[in-house]
Design a protein around this nucleic acid. Structure first.
Lengths: 344, 344
DNA sequence: GCTTGTAACTAAATCGATTTAGCATTTTTC
DNA sequence: GAAAAATGCTAAATCGATTTAGTTACAAGC
């Protein structure tokens, strides 16, 4: 305990303050004073102390005490950053739950939760290091700082990392190079001469590699340099703004690859507002990270991570690790999925 | 412990199995056998036993032991059903985190997580009843079964219910009647003669009331009965299908209120495919539960819950309850927000 | 006056994992 | 050959809350 801090209020604190036993306090906290025949005056004094001292129960202690020794309780977590969208995360959660439901029974229960960290500050998440929060976790949407932290420690429990390559963990990854190449091929295959790629200012590892591969492929096939249009952020609004500026400057393009669907959605608006048609004047390819890409107008052709496969793989690996059936770190690459729709 | 179940494997089990003390086992589990000079042979025997017996650490016990007695650790949960979209939930989470960040300091830490339950089976969530999991929760997207469960118990900690009216809890609610009325007024105000409302087959309390108020308002102002177009589910695909069937059957309409934005998105597709224009031929009003309603084509006019206000109110109430500054159940009604865009 | 009953409490065990202080042995050192 | 050092382990305390099995004090009943 650090100097100068007052000890937190426990049941014992209250008991001493009132001058009764911890048993009496606990009885009142559980509202069982009637059946246990505590004097109303005592109950009131305890209640008052609870309020005055600002008692907050320790859930870990309660849980330890309350749990049925006949059942194993496993806690699983999906850790993601606040800044990232929940699209993939919620799919992961649903898949984890599917597997968990199948494995739940008498003697075995699970809790699954999504926990968020501030991008770059994964290391501050309580209980991560001392394994006192989760029996197994899936970590995703990390920033380089988080990756450095992870690479520097070996978390002593089941960990699957989604979307990063870390030598000491079990990682499931998409293949951004492949994705960028396929996206370029689709646009070039339609006869596009001036393809551009729409990227956010702050690139994640994946989005950067997608864009690079796109540019490299265009270079290799046509000899021309594909332009990078830079948006401020990941939102449709910033995508729209960036593309509007590009088109407005008289710079032309006839094909566009947006490294996230949010940007593609913004691009749609800019293109239409500029009087062009999709895909006739400008063909658009997205990545399929939006739930409703099929309902964009026109429906968005996507080349991106194969989310079903990734989610399956991630969850499978997590349970393998937890059952100790694999211990070595490993990397799993999931090839891209291509969905041709009307936009390209 | 129920009959017939084998006791879970604990550190003690392993210790007895190997013939050493629990201290030795714990040392190996923490990988501190080097500094504590355990014999390599012993380490190996313990490791083998850990694997053979399938040991799973008890995180509650670890946490109790590991925690710094100088800091209070508060666990907050946002409980939602698997079936519901995460749009509002993720906004709630971000707001909770904002408040939490402001209140975190030496001596006080928080964990916030999203936990999901199967719709109608909230009661099965471990630790809810005995207060051994959370110090405070926000519950949302419940079904009537869940509401019955909640109404029948008083959870002995801070609980805020979002979107339901339960007499024994602190509830924050939108005003669906008001919402439906305003939606109808917008369409009627544009001169719509045959407004319809697009609803999912399984209505939540809120969506049902929205639709009812819409129909009632149309009835009151025009004397005509607004048609209810029924979609299978909440997805754009089912919305599109339902509206396509309606328009295809020769039944006409010149204004549409979709009780969720997902349905509105599907409706857009059906309307455009049917050769009509928005809002010229058919005006569309949604509710604003989609992140990107502003980037629909045309941008979607929304009459729905005022999410910013709701989220603020929910989080404020949670912290008031946790600091014991309010104890009585209460209801907070948040008036609708109206955002006029191009679609109506 | 002695048992019986009851009201109003408490001491101590418990949940499972970790750690500190310390106890036997064996080996090294002078 | 005795003291010092190293090796390899264990007993017991601890984290905070809950519950079981009592205990004490006093009133009622015969």
């Amino acid at each position: 305990m650090a100097r100068g801090e007052k000890r937190p209020v426990t049941v014992r604190t209250i008991a001493e303050h009132v001058g009764v036993s911890t048993a009496a306090v606990s009885t009142v906290l559980a509202n069982r004073h009637e059946e246990r025949r505590l004097a109303p005056a005592t109950v009131e004094r305890i209640r008052q102390a609870v309020r005055d001292l600002g008692y907050v129960p320790n859930v870990a202690a309660r849980r330890l005490r309350a749990h049925d020794p006949g059942v194993h309780h496993l806690d699983l977590g999906i850790l993601t950053s606040f800044e990232a969208p929940l699209f993939l995360v919620s799919r992961v959660l649903r898949q984890v739950q599917r597997v968990v439901d199948a494995r739940t029974g008498p003697g075995r229960r699970f809790s699954v939760s999504i926990d968020m960290f501030h991008a770059g500050r994964l290391s501050e998440m309580p209980g991560l290091l001392n394994a006192s929060r989760f029996n197994g976790v899936i970590i995703t949407n990390t920033l380089p700082e988080d990756d450095v932290f992870l690479a520097g420690t070996t978390l002593p429990y089941a960990v699957v990392v989604l979307g990063r390559r870390l030598p000491n963990y079990c990682c499931v990854l998409d293949t951004p190079g492949e994705i960028g190449r396929r996206a370029a091929e689709i646009l070039l295959g339609r006869g596009c001469k001036r393809p551009v790629v729409l990227v956010p200012a702050l690139l994640t590892q994946s989005t950067a590699e997608r864009a690079d591969a796109f540019v490299a492929t265009v270079q290799a096939r046509t000899g021309a340099e594909a332009v990078r249009v830079r948006a401020e952020g990941f939102t449709p609004a910033s995508g729209a703004e960036a593309l509007r500026a590009h088109l407005g400057a008289g710079l032309d393009c006839d094909g566009l690859y947006a490294v996230t669907d949010g940007l593609a959605l913004g691009a749609y608006q800019a293109i239409k507002d500029g009087g062009r048609r999709i895909p006739k004047d400008i063909a658009v390819v997205g990545v399929g990270d939006h739930e409703h890409a099929d309902f964009f107008d026109p429906p968005l052709t996507c080349v991106g991570p194969s989310n079903d496969t990734i989610v399956d793989q991630v969850v499978t690996q997590l349970f393998l690790l937890m059952s100790h059936r694999r211990v070595k770190p490993a990397e799993f690459f999931v090839p891209p999925s291509v969905v041709r729709r009307a936009s390209a």
